[in-house]
């Protein structure tokens, strides 16, 4: 199966407000899928559905189907800890814990009960190497993570996810706090990571979506207006609404 996530007739309400309307979306394995659209269109809400982060918000009602690896994740019986281990999330603002670099990376493993020092050390090295931080930080593993640059912090947050060997990385505006050069480096990292992971990114930066994604979806007022190959979306979108948005005629 090449689709790792599939939604069918997904609807989501924040109390009376409908934030997602009949979203049918298929996310392919080992690809970067970007969700674009104006503020409030539902793209972050959709992203948060994939690891049930919306459960934390009061008054949220979800209907329809969301399958991850063929399994329904909207079921009440689903183990959320396991789900969030396999589908991790990176946020707008890097959010390292006020702990050492090392403790940040192995945090997830510790929570999942791992105590063996050798396992933790191996995982920390591997995860930091995957985000190209190990060489930079190998002698500073005990320094407080809050002392890193923002870009390093964001890499560290990604490494923290990788240590628990997820399948999917959800990224909500992961570069919006970074300068263009740091942004470029995170984008490079994403294209490296997609060989092993599936990435879903929400971004306001259309050029970023165009540069890095393989597939792209345009959302407007809770609906997935158009979904397709990125090259096609940005050269010859089918839907007029998509065209208006990406050419800046929206509004």
């Amino acid at each position: 199966m090449t689709n790792i996530i599939e939604t069918d007739k997904l609807n989501l309400f924040y109390t009376a407000f409908q934030a997602l309307i009949d979203v049918d979306l298929k996310i392919e394995r080992n690809r970067i899928t970007a969700l674009i659209g104006p503020s409030g269109c539902g793209k972050s809400t959709l992203l948060r559905v994939f690891n049930r982060m919306n459960d934390l918000i009061e008054g949220v009602k979800v209907s329809g189907s969301v399958k991850f690896d063929g399994k329904e994740i909207l079921d009440n019986e689903i183990d959320l800890i396991t789900l969030r281990k396999r589908i991790g999330m990176v946020f707008q603002r890097p959010n390292p814990f006020p702990l050492s670099v090392f403790e940040n990376v192995v945090y997830g493993l510790r929570i999942h009960g791992e105590k063996r020092r050798s396992v933790l050390e191996a995982a920390a090295e591997k995860s930091l190497a995957s985000v190209l931080l190990f060489d930079e930080l190998k002698d500073k593993l005990n320094m407080n993570a809050l002392g890193l640059s923002l870009e390093q912090q964001q890499r560290l947050c990604i490494a923290r996810l990788l240590s628990v060997t997820p399948d999917v990385l959800l990224m909500d505006e992961p570069c919006s706090a970074l300068d263009p050069f740091a942004t470029m480096k995170i984008e490079e990292l994403m294209t490296l990571l997609k060989k092993q992971y599936t990435i879903v990114i929400v971004t306001h930066n259309m050029q970023q979506a165009a540069r890095i994604s393989d597939e792209c979806g345009y959302m407007l007022l809770g609906e997935l207006v158009e979904f397709g190959e990125t090259k096609q979306i940005f050269t010859a979108p089918v839907n007029k609404k998509t065209e208006d948005y990406i050419t800046g005629r929206f509004g």
Partner: peptide
Amino acid sequence: QQPMAVDLR
């Protein structure tokens, strides 16, 4: 201008 879609074409 990073033209897209119809503008790019």
